[in-house]
Amino acid sequence: MNFAHLHLLLNHFPIIGTIVGLGLFLISFFGKNDDLRRGSLIVFAAVALLTIPTFLSGFGAQLMVKQKPGVSDAFIQRHEGAAMLSLWFMEATGALALIGLWQVHRISRPATWNVSAVLLFSLVTVGLMARTGNTGGDIRHPEIRGSQQVAVTEGTVGSIVHAFEPTPDKFSESILGWWGGWWWAFIMVLHFIGLALLIGTMGALDIRILGFAKQLPIAPLHRFVPWAIVGLGINIVTGMLAFIGQPQNYIYNPAFWLKMLALLLLGLNAAAFYLTGIFDRVERLGAGEDAPMSAKLIAASSLFLCFAVLTLGRYIQPTGDSLRLGSN
């Protein structure tokens, strides 16, 4: 297993996932199928989470293939720019999908503005993802390039999209260079505020389920969840910016990759909570009522994973680049 392998393993999920999500979303308009719409929103949220490690592994894969004969840096740069643009649109689609799911929960269906926004953003994301896939394929598969050209050429649509894509090296440099060290400090300040918000609000729900401050009824306590998602959103954006600013600090770092794994497990844990009926049973609990064992297990693993993410994050700095996954 190396980064190129990992990237190839992951990179079809964001592309096919957004297409599947958009398909389900479009079909849900016919016959007003609410379950299907909810399903499509869940797919978007899950794909948004999976897109993060896919994007990260691309940096490692890049370092591996860069020196190979027949690999042109221009093709890599184009793919990276396309990937950065799709990443932000995918994360925005995921965030909108989570807002939609919250509205489904609160008022039984997503608001009209949310449906339009998800439709718009997922359509754009599908287009950008297709381009990311194509430009990625061009790097190692000259047989699929338009004519047998060796230089990057763009069609009409391609050149329009390209105008909006960041130039990867310049983007990283500007993140790093802007404000000197202050930009880094500002990002980390936000990352820590997001951490306190996320752990505080999600932790409150977890410890109540485990039996602490049992006088709190669960349904109103659950109203803090959007604030947990705001904290998570702040931390995904600031975390990705920190990575893009200096990928070499993270790419060979075992603590960083374990942190990403713990983050994915946290997503799975949330899915187990909300999609298996456990949440529906817990939500009805009033003051003084005890949660079932299944809910307690999920709350405990949520707390454990939260502190695992925090611990691994703290150890990114001292562990440095002791991981050489990509060098074999």
């Binding site: 709190l216 349904a219 109103p220 306590l221 109203r223």
Partner: peptide
Amino acid sequence: GVAADLPLKPL
């Protein structure tokens, strides 16, 4: 005012 239905005292 967040989670306004949540009783305050148990907090």
